[in-house]
Design a protein around this nucleic acid. Structure first.
Length: 996
DNA sequence: ATGAACCGAGTTTTT
DNA sequence: CTCGGTTCAT
């Protein structure tokens, strides 16, 4: 069994606490929060200890339970669900030690845990000799930490001590003002008796992983709550029996039956001393920047106030966080009240926020599981913006404005643009989340071995349910918006629930991003620290399986080698011959190419297709079957990849689960193998096929408009919100672009100018909810220009904005200089790469292209690595933390109108989608197959939730010439009765704004 | 060998 | 139009 524990709170007898705090109230709040084990806090205080003895009784395992569980119900009148009164308590207190050591005044807070009331009374007796225990729930004693620990250990063999919020400046073990630099300095000969540390609200485990001296400690996180509302804002997850000895064993790492599974945390930037700076000078600096400035404020010339991050860096002996193998992970959260307050644009103490909180808890259950794993679709149907906010929080897509010099940091999930759009809305429409048929909760298999029983999401419709339990080989044909990933994740969780070990499950995705997303979602369900099934791309698995003895070529380098291997090919044809060869290798129709193959072998390099080919060869010689292989986006598999899936999963395919949608196969040019069902049946004739037909994304009108573009019967709409499909025609491409730009600008700027639909008050045009989707990149610039002219911020999916970060730019410049090349790469390095050291970085740089041309001749990776290393260490120039900060800063600008190719928009969704340039030759693209173009059209339409606006121009400046155009043949396929033309009224406004 | 003039086509993108 | 590749001229 697993449980959540909050091991640091205070009673009403501590300073600045809520005066109505009682154990019953705390128990009730713990239940609402999803906390199973709660510290009593203040257990050495006479009055609180009396309350503990009166209200609680020992549970026989070193914890305490309510004497009368029924009393909790009356403590939260706003909560209409039932409360079981099952919260357990652990006797605890925080002690503030103020003493002199090493010639300095030390102020240290420590947490103490005790298994029996007798132990608490005995410790109380001893500490009464030293100071007053009843003046404050958190006693202040002139007792040094080492001696306190000695007394604790002497009190009861199982009693233990945990240094509290170790990085805060004023009262902690490592505090910059009055702390120590090492555990040993603080605890002396007893340092070995300390096995856990509380990281506190302003640091997270990752920061602590910079300090190798902390590797041996478990890092716990607690709320330090002074009121019921604040319980569980940070908390710890444990597996194993709920008893004191097991808990202690889990934290000490000495238990074989209990385990510490990690924490939920605040985003540490929220802390008010996170970064360095000067409040008055409005100067905020990262530790590296501070160091570069010699610790002096560039504005006033006085020493800067150093933050927690700086203090961590001072004691750090690593340049990048390194997670010790025995350390579980963590998840960063924002308290639900804060999220609701942000969504509503109200203060977190207001009545409407409380009411909404109450409604959410009553609907979805306790807060922690809600934040961690409530299905996004349900949250969105409760309230779209709240769903979005929680989704962003889970992805870590939060806006972090780090705190400094006493100023609290801010964590937001919504941008100012979102605020403008949504801020004026009425409060949450308190409607029930859409009810999908709920099925009985799966009963846990009795012999289920997993230490951590995952819960299968309870929101699955009957089709999805079938897809989760049907035996393999199984193909699930999942149209757009039908809950593809949801179903995939649920199937994985069902396997785990039935006792399949994580390592018997392999999930294949097409992009690393998709793999990451899946791992993230699984982790959310399974909890931090749980064993996750392998989820990765075939290429990544092949790379790992083959070992890293070869340099992996980028596309350009591979082509350069191909051309060199075939000097007889005219340059004009070589590129085509190369792409043709690569596609034929993917489709298993390529004749051997000895010249190319041997040149690669000679140079010790491989290309991406080689990865797959070699792995397949290897698997044929040394089969290595995985009992359960699940394939996401199966329509994108090439025949070569199909063979690999088969090689991994065996001929009977009993463990094979494929999910995808033939209608969304738009990567034919890359060798994707056409008809999904035919391909799969070809490999496993006994394949069973299911289809998901309920679309949770789009309104009925859009779904009906999409239907003619699908080979399958129309999807069943679940959403019933308002919206529309519109078609507009314009005299010229310029008019089209300006109309779209002004339509968006007018709506964004002044809602009153929005005339498309006078009844419109929904959220469908919020910035960040609008996309303009085009067939080819070259169509993007005119729209970008028109939007900028209209003052609308634009997002273009071009290279990762992290490259504009000064630290990253410095690294790039250094590498360029050292290697004598002009460009390095447009792709962002994965943070894990930075941990892996210079060799990995060098390999990555080579993979990314441009560098191979310079280095193929010298070939040896060692030389590359050495030259790179001489150029200056990557680590010295850029820490992972800063890279992340840069990423987040970049994200602050991702809430804009998205201007994307349809291919790039695959898998995304928007409330409003504009599809311009719908002209023959552009969509369908001339020279492409009508089938593939049809699917591209379908993918684009199906991105829209509420509003889909299709436009074309009758005249377009293209390729240096003004061309007359004809409307796309696809437009007439849309049933005209569904379409509202761009009408006169709108045109009038458009004319004023845009037409000449 | 290098440079000017000429010609023809123009996607999508991940590993 | 713009880019790359080919061709033709020096």
């Amino acid at each position: 069994m697993t449980y959540w524990a909050d091991l640091h709170i205070h009673s009403r007898y501590s300073r600045a606490t809520s005066k109505n705090l009682s154990l019953e109230l705390l128990a009730a709040w713990a239940e609402v929060k999803g906390i199973h084990l709660l510290a009593t806090g203040d257990c050495l205080h006479a009055a609180w200890l009396t309350a503990i003895k009166e209200t609680l009784i020992p549970d026989g395992n070193g914890f305490f339970i309510l004497r009368d569980p029924k009393v909790v119900a009356q403590h939260l009148p706003w909560y209409h669900g039932s409360l079981a009164g099952s919260t357990r308590f652990i006797l605890s207190t925080e002690i503030s030690s103020i003493y002199t050591a090493g010639g300095r005044v030390r102020k240290i807070h420590n947490l103490v845990y005790l298994p029996t009331v007798e132990a608490a009374q005995s410790l109380r007796q001893r500490l009464l000799q030293i100071g007053n225990l009843d003046a404050d729930g958190r006693p202040i004693l002139g007792l040094n930490s080492r001696d306190l620990l000695a007394m604790v250990l002497d009190t009861h063999p199982e009693a233990f001590l945990v240094p509290a919020h170790i990085w805060t400046p004023w009262f902690s073990l490592f505090g910059s003002k009055s702390g120590f630099d090492t555990i040993e300095e603080c605890f002396g000969d007893l340092a070995g008796e300390v096995f856990a540390l509380e990281t506190g609200l302003s640091s997270d485990p990752e920061m602590n992983w910079l300090v190798s001296a902390l590797d041996r400690f478990r890092l716990i996180s607690n709320s330090d709550a002074h009121s019921g509302e604040k319980l569980g804002r940070e908390a710890n997850r444990f597996a194993g029996a709920m008893d004191f000895a097991a808990l202690r064993g889990a934290l000490a790492g000495t238990s074989s039956v209990a385990a510490f599974l990690g924490t939920v945390e605040f985003f540490p930037e929220e802390g008010k001393y996170h970064l360095d700076g000067h409040r008055a000078c409005e100067v905020v600096l990262t530790p590296t920047q501070t160091r570069e400035l010699g610790g002096i404020c560039p504005r006033c010339g006085k020493p800067l106030t150093l933050g927690v991050l700086h203090r961590v860096y001072q004691l750090a002996d690593r340049d990048e966080p390194q997670q010790p193998p025995e350390h579980p992970g963590f998840v960063s959260l924002i308290p639900l009240t804060e999220l609701v307050a942000e969504v509503l644009g109200k203060g977190s103490g207001t009545q409407v926020v409380r009411d909404t909180y109450a409604h959410l808890i009553s609907t979805f259950g306790p807060e922690l599981p809600l934040l961690l794993e409530a299905p996004e679709a349900d949250l969105r149907s409760f309230h779209p913006l709240l769903g979005e906010a929680i989704a962003r929080m889970r992805r870590g897509q939060v806006l972090r404005t780090p705190g400094y010099d006493g100023i609290y940091g801010r964590i937001h999930t919504l941008t100012p643009e979102d605020r403008i759009q949504f801020g004026t809305f009425s409060p949450l429409p308190l409607k029930e989340p859409h009810r999908r048929s709920r099925q009985a909760h799966l009963t846990l298999d009795a012999q289920q071995k997993s230490a951590l029983p995952p819960t299968i999401p309870q929101t699955l419709n009957p089709e999805q349910m079938k897809a989760i339990h049907a035996p393999g080989p199984l193909l699930v044909s999942a149209g757009p918006g039908t809950g593809k990933t949801h179903t995939l994740v649920a199937r994985i969780l069902a396997l785990l629930t039935h006792g399949v070990p994580a390592h018997d499950i392999l999930v294949l995705t097409f992009t690393r991003k998709a793999a990451q997303e899946l791992r993230h979602r699984l982790q959310l369900h399974l909890g931090p620290g749980a064993a996750l099934p392998r989820a990765d791309t075939l290429h990544a698995l092949a790379f790992a399986a083959l070992g890293e003895q070869h340099l992996l070529l980028g596309e350009d380098e591979a082509f350069a080698l191909f051309a060199r291997a075939h000097p007889e090919y005219p340059a004009s044809k070589a590129r085509n011959l190369y792409t043709d060869l690569q596609r034929r290798r993917e489709t298993l129709t390529a004749p051997p190419d000895p010249a190319f193959t041997s040149l690669k072998a000679q140079l010790g390099v491989i290309d991406y297709t080689d990865l797959l080919e070699r792995w397949w060869e290897r698997l044929r010689v040394q089969p290595s079957l995985v009992p359960h292989v699940l394939v996401d986006e199966a329509q994108d598999l090439s025949p070569l990849q199909w063979q690999l899936v088969r090689a991994l999963s065996g001929d009977d395919g009993a463990g094979v689960f494929l999910i995808g949608d033939t209608d969304q196969s738009i990567y034919g040019f890359r060798g994707a193998a056409g008809d999904l069902e035919a391909q799969a049946k070809g490999l496993w004739p006994n394949l069973q096929t299911l289809r998901l037909t309920c679309n949770y994304r789009s309104i009925p009108t859009i779904i009906r408009a999409m239907a003619p573009f699908s080979r399958f019967p129309a999807l069943h709409p679940v959403q019933d919100g308002k919206g529309e499909v519109r078609i507009g025609s314009f005299a010229t491409a310029e008019h089209e672009a300006r109309w779209i730009a002004h339509t968006i600008a007018a709506f964004v700027g002044q809602r009153s100018h929005w005339q498309m639909d006078t009844a419109d008050t929904d959220s469908s045009m919020g910035l960040g909810e609008v996309a303009i989707l085009v067939r080819v990149q070259s169509l993007i610039p005119p729209f970008e220009a028109a939007l900028r002219e209209a003052g609308v911020p634009v997002y273009r999916a071009e290279g990762d904005p992290v490259w504009s970060h000064p630290g990253v730019a410095a690294v790039v410049a250094t590498v360029q200089q050292a290697l004598g090349v002009e460009t390095v790469s447009n792709a962002a390095p994965h943070p894990s790469l930075l941990e892996a050291g210079p060799r990995a970085v060098a390999t990555w740089l080579v993979e990314q292209g441009q560098l191979v041309a310079a280095f193929l001749e010298v070939a040896a990776l060692e030389e590359l690595t050495e030259r790179y290393t001489q150029a200056g260490s990557w680590k010295a120039l850029l820490t992972q933390r800063e890279l992340e900060l840069a990423n987040h800063a970049a994200y602050q600008s991702a809430q804009k109108v998205a201007l994307l190719t349809i291919h790039a928009a695959k898998g995304l969704e928007f409330n409003t989608v504009f599809m311009p340039c719908l002209e023959e030759g552009l969509l369908p693209w001339h020279g492409s197959s009508e089938e593939e173009e049809r699917r591209i059209f379908y993918v684009a339409m199906s991105r829209a939730r509420q509003r889909l606006i299709l436009t074309y121009a009758r005249q377009r400046h293209l390729w240096g010439r003004v061309q007359r155009t004809t409307p796309s043949r696809f437009l007439v396929r849309i049933p005209q009765e569904l379409v509202r033309p761009v009408d006169e009224r709108t045109k009038t406004i458009s004319r004023q704004l845009a037409f000449v």
